[in-house]
Structure formats: C-alpha cells, structure tokens
Simulated scan of single mutants.
Amino acid sequence: MSSLGELQRLGSSTAGPPRKRDNRAAFFFLSPWFAGLVLITAGPVAASFVLGFTDYNLIQPPEFNGLENFQRMLHDERLHHALGVTFTYVFVSVPLQLAFALGLALLLDRGMRGLAFYRSVFYLPSLLGTSVAIAVLWRQIFGADGLFNQVLGWFGVQGQSWISDPGTALSTLIVLNVWTFGAPMVIFLAGLRQIPVMYYEAAAVDGASKARQFRSITLPLLSPIIFFNLVLQIIHAFQSFTQAFVVSGGTGGPSDSTMFYTLYLYQRGFHSFDMGYASALAWLLLVIIAIFTAINFWASKRWVFYDD
C-alpha cells in the first residue's frame, strides 16, 4: 500500500509539468516552420508592401514616394499590354485545359485496362510542364525546323517559325498550358468515381441519353470539383512565368506578344532595377487574383451544387 501511495503521489506531482513540456517540445519542433514563415514568406511580403511606396533601385536606400508607383501604372502602356496578354492567356487556356482534362477523365472513368498506367502518364505533363527543360523543348518543337512543321510537311503544308511570329507565339504557350492537364484530370477522375452509379441506371431506365445524363447528372454532381479546379488553374495561369521567359529569351517577344504580367514585373525589378515599382506591380497582381477568386466564389452560388 505504501508503494502504491508513493506511485500515486509521484504521478500527481508530475501530472502538470508534462503537458507544459509537451507544449514546449511541440513549439520546438515547429520552430523551423515558424522561422521559415517569418523569414521566407511573411517578412518578404511585408517588405514588398513597404517597398511599393518607395523609389528603390537595389543600390541606394529606398526613398518614400507615396502613391507615385501606383499612379505610374495608369500611364504605363507596356503594363496595359502585358495585362491584355495575360488575360488572353488565362481566359483561353484555362477553359481549354479544364475541358480537355474532363474529357480524358470521362474516358478513363469507363474502366479501361491499365488505368493506373494511363493516369500516371497523363499526370506526368503537370509535373514537367513548368520546367525550363520543357520550355526549351517547346521552343524547338514550334521553331522553323521543329517537329510541328515536320508533321505539317507530311500533309504538304509549309510551316513557319510559330514561336517567332507575333500572331502565333502566344498560342504556342496556350497549347503548352493545355498540355499540362494532368493535375485537374486526376481530380476530375476522383470526383467521377464518387458519383453513385444508381443515378445513371435510373436515368437509363427513364430513357435518358448519354448526353442528357452528362448534363443532368455528371455536371451538377461534379460542379464542386469543376469549381475547385477552376480557381486553382486561374491562379496558376496568372502566375505563369517560366514558359514565357524561356521561349522569348526573357524579352517577352516577338513584339511583346508573350509579355506576361509576371515577366514584365521581373523586367522592371531585375532589368531596370526599379524594385519599388516592381513591388507595387506584385501587389497589383495579388489584387487581380483576389478579385477573380472572389468573383468565382460569388458566381459559384448559382452553378455549384453540394449534397446539402
């Protein structure tokens, strides 16, 4: 009994401190993440916000200039052109990419053999599409002597340097973004697998065609997945940089036809050393993405359907 009492007293005396020790241990192991959040993310974000109101060339100390950087945006014709190029890229490539991803997901959902293999192969472009190597390869494919022109030559069509033509250079980057359909396709495929088969069986008994089943069953039940992919791909498209940088050699050419917003921001910051203006441009991009995200969430109330 005495030994049992001593164990109880020992347990009661150490009941409080272990929880504090556990908390200290948790904070200790989380400290690298908090340090990264402050030093790598939160700190630079706060610094860019402050620099957006300054004249800073990376050499001399920043000088406060109020709203001058934001006023310059109203008269910056090249910025307006970059916005037009970026909006065209987003509004054309994202719907095409999602439509292509959904079509392949519907095809794979039919239960073909080797589904895991095809799913992995189709997902691979999403892993490689934003790399420098693929951008270089894309420039070679659509060059004057590239693979695309060789295929056209089989049909007697004389090709051109699609990358060097201002009328088609942006289209090649749109095709590249559509090619990276793997990630949304996998998400679409997972969503299709969650739709109960009994809905389609009941619709087939009522005489509904495949097209009617797609409109009345698949699209409504898949609308949350479509909304999720739409938001993510719009954000990703607005942040596209590597493709345009590599294909155009960092110039946004030819004739600024591939001058993405992010590429113009990079040029202002690291070519012209106008870091104050570049910081203001970065915050404008954040506002643009936030506006489009808010519009999507507002519009989703009209076309996204949930179980509840």
Rank of each mutant, 00 (worst) to 15 (best):
R302L: 14
L128F: 09
S161H: 11
F238V: 06
T251S: 12
W283I: 13
R119T: 06
L30H: 02
N65R: 13
V287F: 09
G250Y: 07
M185V: 09
Y306F: 15
F297V: 15
I217G: 00
Y118Q: 06
V151N: 02
R212N: 05
R19Y: 11
R139W: 07
V94R: 02
M275W: 12
L170H: 03
A105F: 08
P224G: 04
G111M: 07
N177Q: 13
P166V: 04
F70T: 02
Y118T: 12
T258M: 06
R78I: 14
M112E: 00
A211T: 09
S3G: 11
H271V: 06
G253C: 01
K301T: 05
F53W: 08
Q233K: 07
A237I: 02
I134H: 00
S300Y: 01
A101F: 05
P254V: 07
Y200V: 05
G5I: 13
F142E: 02
F305V: 12
Q194H: 14
D145W: 03
S216H: 08
W33V: 15
H271R: 10
K301N: 03
L79W: 15
P184D: 00
A299E: 11
S300C: 02
V45R: 00
F28A: 12
V94N: 02
N229T: 12
D165Q: 11
N229W: 05
M112A: 01
A278W: 13
M1P: 09
L98M: 00
R139K: 14
L37K: 02
F155Q: 10
L106F: 09
L230E: 00
T293F: 10
H236P: 00
L74C: 00
H271M: 07
I291W: 00
S248W: 04
E201A: 09
A135Q: 04
V246H: 08
I187Q: 00
L173G: 03
D206F: 01
A169G: 03
D307L: 15
I295V: 12
A190S: 12
F297Q: 06
V178L: 04
L107F: 13
G43P: 03
L285R: 08
A25G: 05
A280W: 09
Y264N: 02
